[in-house]
Design a protein around this nucleic acid. Structure first.
Lengths: 169, 169
DNA sequence: CTGCGTAACGTTATTGTATTACGTTCGGCG
DNA sequence: CGCCGAACGTAATACAATAACGTTACGCAG
């Protein structure tokens, strides 16, 4: 954790600056090629998400921006997040009311999130065969799937090794 | 819809009073047998959820209670919901910040929710073979699954028939 | 019966999450 | 230039959930 926070939605995970930079560069290129407006706020928010490696609540992002001297109000950050999510550069993790940079940009995938209830780490696991998993069952209900939300809570390998079996919420 | 609501989280679906009553009776029996305290607030909230058939936001439940002359504050309703969810009588639908009575009580199952973005109807689809679906993939990540959240947005058969293909959020 | 402990309740206040509304700035383009 | 649309900046507010109290109800040991 970087500092005591009035808002609790900071998800612990080691920053991963290397891939973070490359992600931002990739997104930048993609926007340039596709005529998308990769503005300052959008970049700032993506920088923070990518630098974090894990998931952050919107108001934690606001705090981080404040740390950098950027005075961003909720609407600013939510607008940036809307953009990033709409174009597949980030995901919303409903189970945590949090957001994370996409780990597999440009690859068509259904994101599945593995959330460790021990250490709070969030890992994205791309699922390509969604249809195979849910298709048959939903067909029975005559339901056409547009978007699936799959989030898994459990215990990551590190925490299992450490014996930190933690009760989930 | 029953009446204009200050809170928008009312999910349209025809009430199904028949199975609603039987659900409440079932829950009542189950509580009696297992020494669970099926109190007034818990029953009131379950009544409303079961009568709705679909999903309701917590504050909509409060309004409904007010309609019945019951003055319930948020804490009351959330406490009741906690109980109902803890014992498998209701589920929380994160994607809607809403709650629904369980359609398959007493049957061990992973609930999958089919949410129609056209009419807002929510249908619960029990999934028994979770492990088969996610188990192999999560093993790769050395992750022990404790709880899975699966919600699907799309278009239900009725809306597809009506041609009401609606943009989802 | 009395007194204690626990579970649930009732109420007020507050925190956390997200959106609305409205004016402003900026850049492309006819 | 003058218009238009996208994005910004700001304030206010709506919606969702929890915290922190004290109070009531009830089983049960003494």
């Amino acid at each position: 954790m970087r500092r005591p926070s009035a808002y609790a939605t900071e998800i612990r995970q080691e920053p991963n600056p290397v891939s973070a930079t490359s992600l931002v560069v990739e997104v930048e290129r993609h926007c340039a090629r596709n005529g998308l407006n990769f503005t300052r706020s959008r970049r700032l928010v993506l920088d923070i998400l990518a630098g974090q490696g894990g998931a952050l609540g919107a108001y934690t992002i606001i705090e981080r921006l404040a740390d950098e001297g950027v005075n961003a109000k909720p609407a600013i950050v939510y607008r940036a997040l809307d953009f990033l999510i709409a174009h597949g550069f980030a995901h919303k993790i409903k189970g945590l009311n949090a957001f994370a940079a996409c780990t597999f940009p440009h690859q068509a995938h259904l994101p599945v999130f593995l959330i460790c209830s021990g250490c709070g780490t969030v890992v994205e696991m791309p699922l390509s065969s969604t249809e195979a998993l849910l298709g048959k069952r939903t067909e029975i209900h005559g339901f056409r799937v547009e978007h699936a939300l799959i989030e898994v809570k459990g215990c990551c390998s590190d925490c299992m090794a450490a014996g930190t079996t933690h009760e989930s919420n």
